[in-house]
Nucleic acid binder design. Structure first.
Lengths: 359, 359
DNA sequence: TTGTACGCGTTATCAA
DNA sequence: TTGATAACGCGTACAA
């Protein structure tokens, strides 16, 4: 068998299915079949076609295929406005897990950013209604709506992460912020702490509300009212956790009656708070126990090592993606609308018994 | 003007250009023109078409457009195998800047992961040769090659970030790891330090090699040979920076002659090293000055605050993306093949004069 | 300024 | 098992 001299093996972006068909001496429809349903074609022909495709470095044109079959193989992940780059790497961790799962299932991942402006919402809706994407994951945000288009009505499967919107029939994969904080606070209560200092995330934020509620529930469970909690922060987004922590330290220093336990809504806040409060002369955990939220790896290497609530971001991303793909592929799939993946409290050196217990 | 009762305003994914044309009473080609070149159509017609499109919630089908015009509007970013989630958030920061710039220019961003296995390389090549993407950014990695296909020959513009491959005609947007470390080391030398302890990244890694070279250059400049450097680490990837730092602390403790200055190839290493070495009884910076690389925000809140070299990730991502888009849109654009964006040394409390100077 | 007609590359239907 | 053919939705010559 002679090889044609004009081998296109390393040519730019050409090599169409027609080229493969010609080289293999078959019709394009046969090539298409050989590549998609290898079983429904004569083995010998299949091999010849495969060889031809290989030789030409043939790669199917994705746009043509999408147009023909009426759906893309792209999944979109909608990320909240300002990802924050403190110690807590929620977004990158989720993204990594999502991407891995998406690829493993033969899809591609596209990123969309949901800022608060209309143009970004419009962009997301274009992606959905224009058929660019076949499914969407949305992280800790409400579904965008602009003009007379709403993502919910785009006719594609959607799965929410971290934010519970199962009430609007959108499957939600979430963690139990509230319960996790409650359990951590109960440990502090068991260590004899009564007065708490709470460093808040942005007021009204879903996670902020839940975490604070967990603290209140724990106190209530111990017969204490929310009056035992002194709040700080709340005026800055999670993005500025470090700043919030610094301000909180100053707030703390001004208090007449000092709490003995601190619960922070994010690791960033706790890290900068702890750093500053120690410079101001307080000792952790002797004077003050500190607990925070996120489970950043760096917490283990703080001084003292910081107790935190680890969020199962990998499991969350993977579960949500598999959930979405299941919905995309068999929409009749009956699956629950709400999956809770538990967070885990990691106890480290930043907490100890309340030394002022007898005061 | 009457509205048709059968308004499709909130229908799933339908609403074709033909629908808009019908509603506006024009041909599809006119609709196409009105949407793309609003100038080349009668204003009155344009308004009627716009209204019709609005009413129907029309969104152009991306696959059809891509197929027709022969190119997509998707840019791919190829990320290195195992992103590491320590304190140094190189990848998410670059990603954020890239995504912002991509969207601002009317493109979409797709994520590709370059693990070391063949399947992920094949996947990337499919994206390129299948016309799914129109340009590629590649982060700190070599261009993938599988079978008789190479990304370099896919016929699409490519820009490399962090890794200098300008030698193979791929435009590279990089930082000056070597110079930055050299300058930091020169500060340490000026403070009287002579013996250095270097905590290495993965042996052979581009950044590792460059950073170490910077240290050596600084010493040479001061008339000292590399013998003044004791190396540790090198056996783990950057991903395991925290572990590397812990091991380094143990290595340090075993040394007969203690260096007075530590240079770490990443913040993670320095953070865990500093944490451990202090627990072992050494004081920073009184006994030991520490400097590291990456510029993680958390460094400011370490005890003591950690001197580090801040990498201009936002500028890097933005520059690279703009560079790529310029190449995509006007391939004749003459631009340099190599852009260096300087890193910045941030001096904090972790360094001080060498107290053993007279020893 | 607007309409007609064709083709982008693939897959699916149908007939051979 | 294979081949001819149509169609996916859009953009763009070209003609009107």
């Amino acid at each position: 068998m002679k090889k044609t001299e004009d081998s296109l093996s390393t040519e730019g972006s050409s090599a169409l299915m027609a080229d493969v068909a010609r080289l293999a001496g078959v019709a394009t429809s046969t090539v298409s079949r050989a590549l998609a349903n290898p079983g429904r074609v004569n083995e010998k022909t299949r091999a010849r076609i495969a060889a031809a495709a290989e030789q030409l470095g043939y790669t199917p044109n994705a746009a043509a295929r999408s147009l023909r079959v009426g759906r893309s193989n792209v999944i979109m992940i909608i990320l909240p406005g300002s990802p924050h780059y403190g110690a807590s790497q929620i977004i990158p961790q989720v993204l990594e897990a999502v991407n891995r799962t998406v690829i493993r299932n033969g899809y591609n991942l596209m990123i969309a950013n949901l800022d608060r402006d209309e143009s970004s919402e419009r962009h997301i809706l274009d992606l959905a209604f224009g058929g660019t994407v076949r499914g969407a994951l949305i992280l800790s945000s409400q579904l965008p709506v602009v003009d007379n288009r709403s993502l919910a009505e785009a006719g594609l499967p959607i799965v929410s992460l971290l934010l519970d919107v199962s009430g609007t029939s959108v499957p939600s994969i979430i963690t139990n912020d509230r319960l996790a904080v409650k359990e951590a606070a109960m440990e502090l209560l068991a260590l004899g702490h009564r007065r708490f200092f709470y460093i808040a995330g942005p007021t009204g934020n879903y996670h902020e509300v839940e975490r604070y509620a967990g603290l209140v529930e724990a106190l209530n469970g111990a017969g204490l009212s929310a009056d035992y909690i002194t709040r700080s922060g709340g005026n800055l987004t999670f993005q500025f956790g470090f700043e919030t922590g610094l301000q909180a330290a100053e707030d703390f220093a001004r208090l007449d009656e000092k709490p003995t336990a601190v619960v922070a809504a994010s690791d960033d806040m706790a890290i900068s708070f702890m750093s500053k409060i120690q410079k101001m002369g307080w000792r952790v955990p002797e004077d003050l126990s500190v607990v925070s939220f996120d489970g950043s790896p760096v917490c283990e290497y703080c001084s003292p090592s910081l107790s935190t609530i680890e969020q199962p971001m990998e499991a969350l991303g993977e579960t949500a993606t598999e959930f979405l793909i299941a919905r995309m592929e068999k929409s009749d799939e009956k699956r629950e609308l709400r999956v809770v993946i538990p967070s885990r409290f990691i106890r480290r050196d930043s907490i100890a018994v309340n030394s002022k217990l007898t005061t």
